[in-house]
Nucleic acid binder design. Structure first.
Lengths: 192, 192
DNA sequence: TGTTTTCTTGATTGATGAGTCAATAAACTT
DNA sequence: AAGTTTATTGACTCATCAATCAAGAAAACA
């Protein structure tokens, strides 16, 4: 039944299956066979297209980062004025998509991957850099040079609140998390 | 050469070796043999004393939490006055011990473990609860009922700053990280 | 039509690793 | 001294898994 032009389809299916499996198992202890099975193909085919398990993981990570980036871009497009832009970024960071079981699992495990795989650390760096520059861009018209510093604080706060929300067990409350960060933001801004 | 009373000694050695190996490898992909070898014994003996790899991991996690708790208690003992107490907690959280390679690896991997092992999540909950109540206790004399809220923010900020400092690559700068959190604290307090 | 490329998998390889067990020996107990 | 408990390991089992390969079958090409 071989049809031609399968490569992108297969790869996409594998990436999706990888994220699902990591979320299901809760760790990087997923076998290529599990992934391939969920993606509806043999493990040999997975190796054929990606070469190694490591490459599959990296592709999955790129995909998560892409999704997150799209979420942010979408939110920014619908926001006008600096204040609205900052708020949009924060809210997008805690959108329901970020709290899906498999996305949580992916993030936590990518932190771990970054300890070993330089490429994974590079990707995380890109994510942090983009978040930072988005925040600075939105904050500069409001507070000028203090934007840099506040953006760093906000970035850390976002990650920290996310981590706690995720680790506290039970169903995460994205709205409450966003509200917490926005409260912090308000207090920082009123002083200026 | 069997001497009696080896159990606690062996267990302690295994726990230490576990943390070292997790830090070295950067993930939970450590074999019992590796751990046992570093601890100077056979893998069979490791199984004899702990029963399973999972139990070894949990023991290691308890140990990390104990060390952290001791660091905090030590810092608190040398601090008088509420302000000094909060500052002590923050500084202790970013003490050099927290940034040792193996401690970093342990924390990140415990986050992942908590996704799978309920006991691991319970232990993390204890850590967060203690940190929170320490902060509230120190903050209440200064700001009364707002202590709860600020303690939550501070806790998240500590975790977030730690995570970023750890993931940015290169040598982490504990002093800079602590300063960042203390700046945040100052701004929150001056408004009250 | 014959040849090459793409797609696909079952079977296999080779390695690794968690956990068990039987056996040895030293130390305590009675 | 005989028996029990504690310490210790080498050898083994059983399972898993990443990666490879040979081979088949459909499409594209010449």
């Amino acid at each position: 039944m071989p049809k031609v032009g399968m490569e992108p389809i297969r790869k996409a299916a594998l990436v999706k299956a990888t994220i699902t499996e990591i979320g299901r198992v809760g760790s990087l202890d997923v076998t290529v066979s599990q992934i391939a099975k969920r993606a509806g193909m043999s493990s040999a085919l997975a190796h054929h297209y990606f070469g190694s398990k490591e490459q599959i993981f990296l592709a999955a990570m790129r995909h998560i980062l892409t999704l997150y980036g799209a979420e942010i871009r979408g939110a920014l497009a619908a926001a006008d004025g600096p204040g609205a832009r900052v708020e949009a970024i924060v809210r997008a960071s805690f959108a329901s998509g970020s709290f899906r079981r498999e996305v949580i699992g992916a993030w936590l495990n990518f932190y771990v991957l970054a300890q070993t795989l330089p490429e994974a650390m590079r990707l995380l760096g890109i994510y942090q850099g983009r978040l930072h520059s988005n925040l600075v861009h939105a904050l500069r018209p409001m507070i000028g040079d203090r934007a840099e510093q506040l953006a760093r604080g906000l970035g850390a706060m976002i990650d920290g609140v996310y981590l706690r929300e995720v680790l506290k067990g039970g169903t995460p409350d994205g709205a409450a998390a966003a509200a917490m960060v926005l409260d912090y933001l308000d207090r920082e801004l009123e002083g200026a």
